[in-house]
Amino acid sequence: MTEVTLQEPWATAERQRVAVQFGMWLFLATETLFFGGLFLTYAVARFSHPAGFVAAAREAEAMFGTINTVVLLTSSLTMAIAERAVREALVPLARAMFAATLMLGVAFLVVKGFEYRSDIVKHLVPGPEFTLSQTGASQFWAFYWTATGVHACHMLIGLGVVTRMLLIPAADLPGRSTTAEGSALYWHLVDLIWVILYALIYLVGR
């Protein structure tokens, strides 16, 4: 085990680790409330117009959603291994796993892009060309675009965070285990949000 690089104002590695975990989890708590507010719009819309809402959800492409769920769960696996490898100073494994995470993240966005194209072709963007007429349908699709869009933004930030881990020189990496842990926490949260979105968007009305 290598000594952890200490940041101001921490005196011990243990304390610094608790601080990063605590700070990061507080941030994740804000994310919980952020997405909590978003999911509230889903709950209210579905409660107000159950039939139209569920009928519209049937238009969502479950295949894309399921593939992306597998991709993201796998990326969480590689991230978990990478983070543990950094702590055990297994540098080549850690870097390989960070790279894999990055690739899976990009793959998620690519699949998402194909899904968006298919949705647009099918005129599922609320607006003048919107094809569904039942009340509540445009509510579902407004949620769909907002939620997946916001989630994709989180993915982009996550890709930046993983890239940063890859930019740390190999020799310094074992000392940065708290940084790796913070990055991993963020990545897992983005995965966790997707798991809920998957149930809310793709499994409704099948």
Binding site: Q21, W25, L26, L28, L33, E181, D191, L192
Partner: peptide, 19 residues
Amino acid sequence: FMQLRQAVWLVRLAALGGL
């Protein structure tokens, strides 16, 4: 994955707070 199992109570509390 997020290791709440090994985390100290303070960290778990932060996680619970948002919920």
